[in-house]
Design a protein around this nucleic acid. Structure first.
Lengths: 191, 191
DNA sequence: CTTTATCGAGGCACTGTGTCTCGTTAATAG
DNA sequence: CTATTAACGAGACACAGTGCCTCGATAAAG
């Protein structure tokens, strides 16, 4: 174990049990009450943890949920083995991604992103830990269906942009059917 | 003039001067400090207005900015006369829209949308007064470049989605160059 | 001139945040 | 075993922003 700042192995070690309790309580409260309604007090109370422990290790709600989302992603990492059909691989990836985003998890992601709007440092973490990894997963799938003259970054913006737009604006569901429509549009763009 | 609730024309009329001062002060503070940092106290002080006046007519920050954005949109309505070239019309519309979104106005729009996330009623207003009108403007432009088998709503989601994704995530600028790329992608999708 | 509803100004309770201090507890160092 | 160290749960505190209330003043209609 290590001290919070000096990484010397002395003193009482950080409680892994408390950490798990906090992440689990935070996700549970977000699912039940919605991200915006959850406070640090709520999380501390639900996790059976002192408030100071939250400020010591995270500091704010968005950082807690960012870590919780990271663990969720690590659990369901579902290695996408390439089949013989690049178009089917793309579609399957989008169906899985959009399907997950359509649950409360997507609402939490939106909440974290939203909190990052007014705080550049947090925004940078969100970008690095939440957004860029997904872009990195999508790019190779697009490489296998798009001709070289189509810009990859633009295609990624169009695909994930459509997803985010619906997550924010809620004019239509984010689900597998939408994922298939978007996949078809990409293939149409491929010509 | 009319009473706030009963619309009987009696009593002191609402001050149009105060209303303009509030909207102007709100936009100015957002431009200077960023949407999230602005408070109702700040707006009241900058507008030289009592706080109760804000609660009487608007109730919260997002509603003030929503009205201010509405007036901005009404001023710069720039009737888009159709030229002979549908592709050029689409591109011009996107260049103007993305260009505006790239300024602090886009950040205000994001802030209002963000506040609407945790408040269904406000979210509905944002959708109706801010999002749907833009979709309505884009649709006929797409009609003139897309073949009938391409779904319009999906195309709108892809175009504005890409814009919103960049506004939120800030991994790349929202500007005229991006607008032209998106327009080209739509034309490519048209085949 | 009376009635009415707005005006700017300010007070107050409430909530969530962030910092601080307790006494306690679980590790390592000697 | 004992001392040291740092995290633990719990709670107090100041601070900021919100939302509601009241006040005397003001500008319109009847």
């Amino acid at each position: 174990m290590s001290c919070k700042v000096c990484s010397v192995t002395r003193g009482r070690p950080r409680s892994e049990e408390s950490r798990r309790a906090v992440l689990s309580a935070a996700l549970g409260l977000c699912e039940r009450d919605g991200y915006q309604a959850v406070t640090l007090k709520d999380i501390a109370a639900a996790a059976g943890v002192g408030r100071q422990t939250l400020y010591r290790w995270w500091g704010e709600k968005a950082e807690i949920l960012l870590e919780a989302l990271g663990e969720l992603a690590a659990e369901g990492l579902a290695a996408p083995e390439p089949s013989g059909d690049p178009a089917a691989d793309l579609e399957e990836f989008l169906v899985r991604t959009f399907g997950s985003a359509g649950t409360y998890v997507g609402a939490v992601v939106v909440g974290v992103m939203v909190d990052g709007q007014g705080r550049p440092e947090l925004g940078e973490r969100v970008r690095r830990e939440l957004i860029q990894p997904r872009r990195g997963e999508l790019r190779p799938l697009l490489d296998r269906v798009l001709p070289p003259e189509v810009d990859r970054e633009l295609a990624v913006d169009l695909v994930f942009g459509a997803m985010w737009y619906r997550l924010l604006n809620r004019h239509a569901p984010v689900d597998g059917a939408f994922a298939r429509e978007v996949a078809a549009a990409v293939l149409r763009m491929a010509g």
